[in-house]
Amino acid sequence: MAIRFENFNDPRKNAIDGMKRSISNELWTKNTAFLAKLRADISNHPVSKHPAIQMLNDGVIDRASLEKIHLEYRHAIVQVFTDALLMAQFQTKQLEPRLKSGSKMFPRFLLSLNILDEFGFRPGVDQDGYYSGNPEYAHYPLFEDVLNDFGISQTKRTEYKPSIISEKVRSYLENSFSNYKAVSALLAVAEEEVILFSPALRQATHAVGFDVDSGYYYVHGVSHDATAEAADDDHEDDLWFVLAQACTEDDYDHIARICLEYCDLWQQFWDQQIADLKYEPYRKLA
């Protein structure tokens, strides 16, 4: 007889519980301990205290420089973030046949919550009792709206030549797309970088005269604000839970190495943004 599941409340917990049940208690415990240590190492990486954060928060960066930073950031992560999420969701197939059939659906379900936010869906139902959402509220188009506010033309966006380090940051993530554990790990790091830098980018954008109480900076950079719509903390946690199901001890060294290398690249990215500032007083603030 088929088992009926009628609990549709707390979808995150349902997915995490399913992932936990799909492996042994011993492996789940080992994996979560490893990932907790890795998360601490990432939190202590120098990029988490990069001087760019303070400079952006202080509003000392002029509009022209901030335009360039947004174009760089767009190339490095915004354009490819949902590509990476979809690849992680697709590559859950790599869990089978190591785990029993159907195990890939738990992380696919959990990743879908991140994807729904990224694509412009909202919790709740519309007037017809169907899903609520609008693709124009997807995070990538909202970032493009920020560039519209800056007056950056489509031609300038298309013809923009990103820096070498921006290309390296982007390529490092793209090169992980064929490996489920790798792309999930780097996405978790990317979420951490979003949590670190989005509030500062939001402040810097406000400082040059733009409204940040709606649009992209209403869903990024405000995780502490219960009235806003950011869920970056949950999404990062969920990616680490995905890895807690997927990892074996043989993966630990590789995952730790690529996560810290990705942090190194992000540090170099922000080093470059400071180095490119037009005025010497800005560089002295670093």
Rank of each mutant, 00 (worst) to 15 (best):
F269D: 04
V146I: 05
N7I: 08
Q273F: 00
E118C: 08
R157M: 01
L196P: 00
I69E: 01
L239F: 13
S214T: 08
Q91D: 02
E67C: 02
S184Q: 06
H254L: 13
I61K: 08
F143S: 01
M87T: 08
I115G: 03
K37C: 02
V242H: 06
V78D: 13
P97F: 03
R283L: 10
Y279P: 00
L260G: 00
M105R: 12
P46E: 08
F90S: 07
M105W: 15
H235G: 04
K100Y: 14
Q91Y: 06
D41K: 12
Y252V: 08
K156C: 01
A33K: 15
N25R: 07
I77Y: 13
E72Q: 08
I42W: 06
Q272Y: 04
R202C: 01
V80A: 06
M55N: 10
E191D: 10
T92W: 12
D234L: 15
E191W: 09
D253A: 15
A84E: 06
P107Y: 13
D117W: 15
D17Y: 06
D41I: 09
R157E: 10
V222T: 12
A207N: 04
F269A: 03
L277M: 14
T205L: 09
R98L: 04
E192C: 10
I115C: 01
S24D: 12
F269K: 12
W240T: 13
P11M: 14
I115D: 02
L85H: 05
S103K: 06
L35F: 05
I274D: 08
D238M: 15
T158D: 11
F210A: 06
V47W: 11
F177S: 00
Q203W: 05
V183N: 02
A275Q: 11
D233T: 07
E144R: 10
A138V: 03
D271S: 00
S24P: 08
S198T: 11
G151D: 08
I61C: 03
L201I: 04
L147D: 01
N134A: 08
F210C: 05
D41E: 14
H220F: 14
A190W: 04
L111P: 03
Y172M: 05
E236C: 09
F106A: 14
Q127Y: 14
V212Y: 11
A52S: 12
A231L: 10
T32M: 09
D264P: 05
E6P: 03
Y180R: 10
G215A: 04
R21F: 07
L142H: 05
Q267N: 09
Y218K: 02
D233A: 05
A64C: 03
H224C: 04
I152P: 03
G102C: 12
Q54T: 14
I61T: 02
Q154M: 02
A84G: 14
I195D: 02
Y137H: 11
R12E: 15
I42E: 13
A40W: 07
A52F: 15
S223C: 01
Q267E: 09
I274W: 13
N134F: 07
L110M: 12
